[in-house]
Computed example of a mutant assay.
Amino acid sequence: MSPLLFAHWTWPDGLALLWMLVLWFVYGRFADHLPPDDVKPSNLNQMMHHLRRAWMRRMLDREERIIDSSLTGHSVSATTFFASTSMLIIAGLLGVLGNAGAAHDVIQSFGFVARSSVVLFEIQILGLVILFIVAFYKFTWALRQFNFACTLIGAAPAAPVEPALRDRFADHAARVMSLAVVSFNGGIRAYYFAMAWLGWFIHPIAFAATTSIVVLVLLKRQVKSRSQQSVAEYYDAAWR
């Protein structure tokens, strides 16, 4: 590695970046794991996977499935919006990177920002670009998987459906939809961590703190939010 590249790279910078990567990986493993049918879900995302399976079973009992296609279409529209937004953000960040010297001077004029080099500032901006590239790829893969789910809904067998085929279809259709949601959530998660990344412009300790706060907020929404409690109460009542 070039000494010039990391002329002002300190060990707090490295530790804060490592802390973010570790938390991103660990939280992703927790939030994105899809449990088997016989395992009780431990977070909101896992409960929603079981509910999607129930949704697909209910769908097979209906002759008209316009509402199911419409609900999936809303997810496609939201995913397309975020994918397009990610591209606009990437373009804006590349513009900042192209004029890093002037942007660095503006940031350094703030009294609460720690002193840093232009090279470190460019690395920080480049890191944001990478985060939004990850988000873009997550959203576009989610978009494709939602289209796969739409195809499965269109190809669903007509009612009445044999129980074995019903369960098999529901399992596979729900998994495709849940995998699409996992990709979508991964893109949204990149946005959250990009917000935490802004703390690095202030100080590495602020970066580590904002990353921790973001993960705590995400964890609370998964296991202790009012939405999670409402879904959990319905889940326990329906599958007791």
Rank of each mutant, 00 (worst) to 15 (best):
F82E: 01
Q124M: 12
A159D: 13
L21T: 13
V129Q: 00
V223W: 07
D68F: 10
V231P: 01
N147A: 13
L94T: 09
I133M: 04
G98W: 02
L71A: 13
A190L: 01
A159Q: 14
A208E: 02
V39G: 06
W19G: 00
F184R: 01
E64N: 11
A155R: 12
A54G: 12
M47Y: 09
T140W: 03
W11T: 04
P12H: 00
H172P: 06
L51H: 08
K40Q: 11
I107Y: 10
G98E: 02
V22Y: 11
L60W: 02
H74K: 15
T210Y: 08
Y234C: 13
H74L: 15
K138P: 03
H172L: 12
I66K: 15
F121P: 01
L179F: 10
L218T: 08
I133T: 02
A83K: 00
S227C: 09
V161Q: 05
A16I: 03
L23D: 07
L93E: 01
Q228P: 04
P41W: 05
A194T: 03
S117K: 08
I202A: 05
H49I: 04
A54W: 11
F139Y: 11
Q228V: 08
F201D: 01
L198G: 03
Y235S: 06
S75H: 15
I123H: 10
D105N: 14
V134N: 09
R115G: 09
D13M: 03
V161L: 09
I133S: 00
F201V: 01
I130G: 00
W24V: 02
L51V: 14
F132I: 01
R65S: 06
T210A: 11
A135E: 00
V76Y: 09
M195G: 06
T211H: 04
S230T: 15
S86Y: 00
A103R: 06
G186N: 04
L216D: 04
V39Q: 09
P157M: 08
Q145T: 07
A164G: 13
E233H: 11
P41V: 04
V22E: 04
L21F: 15
Y235K: 05
T210M: 12
S227Q: 13
M195K: 12
D171Q: 14
W19R: 05
L88P: 07
M47Q: 08
L21W: 15
G186M: 01
T85M: 14
A196F: 01
A83L: 06
Y192D: 04
N45C: 08
Q229N: 12
Q124L: 12
E122W: 10
A142E: 02
R115T: 10
M59G: 03
F184P: 00
A114P: 02
P157F: 07
Q145L: 11
S84I: 10
S42H: 14
S227D: 13
A114Q: 12
G98V: 03
W11I: 05
V176G: 02
S75N: 14
A16M: 03
D61G: 13
T72G: 14
I90H: 01
D61E: 14
M87N: 06
